[in-house]
Amino acid sequence: MFEAKLIQASLLKKILEPIKDLVESANFDCSPSGISLQAMDSAHVTLINLLLRTDGFETYNCERSLSLGLSINALSKALKCAGNDDTLTMKARDEPDTLSLYFESPKNDRVCDFEIKLLDLGNDQYTIRDTEYAAVIKMPSSELQRICRDLSTLGEVVTICANKEGVKFSTSGDVGSFNITVRPTTDSSAKSEDSITIESKEPITLNFSLKFLTHFTKATPLSPTVKIKMTDSAPVVVEYNIEDLGYLSFFLAPKLE
């Protein structure tokens, strides 16, 4: 028996928003310590890694680990019916065929319930090793969203070049080239949410598909800040912290020259 209650159904909506265009279906792995999801897009360019910890739920009950294979599309269709302030309860039996979702309005005067069929998805998992990063950049998530949007008007590939002084995002297209540089915030009175920090061990330059990066920024409503972690010839990590609950991170494989 698995049962978990989230105070805000809209939170799951926000989590699915960046995921739903990248993957069609994924396994939600529920265990006594929380819910996690790992999924790859069909071109195997990006890996999505989601963790929702038990303590972020209003109630959480899971004695046996189970894997819920869900169509992301079906799940987000169901969530469309949830009001902004509705609570969400998820329930599944042991050896389940379906997942039940209950949306309740704050005044308890309206209840919707959904039963979503589960899919049999392969059970492949990937080991994500903890590595030392050459650069870790923290910036307002809206800033990254804007950079991606602006660069996409011109090119398809972004070159991210980071050192202690700043981070340069550049692209080029048929009409010319375009660079955006952001520098660490020096104003000590700035709120941590609005400031940019760069921890740089060594200068680093990597190329990525702008299309995917732009997709990731759909997670902007989840968190005021975003972390970008880079290592030489390795995937970049774009990480959104979900307050009190966990995180949603994206790994994107680099493009080689």
Binding site: V45, T46, L47, Y126, I128, P235, A253, K255
Partner: peptide, 8 residues
Amino acid sequence: QTRIDTFF
């Protein structure tokens, strides 16, 4: 474009 599964 490299593949993500070569890294994990």
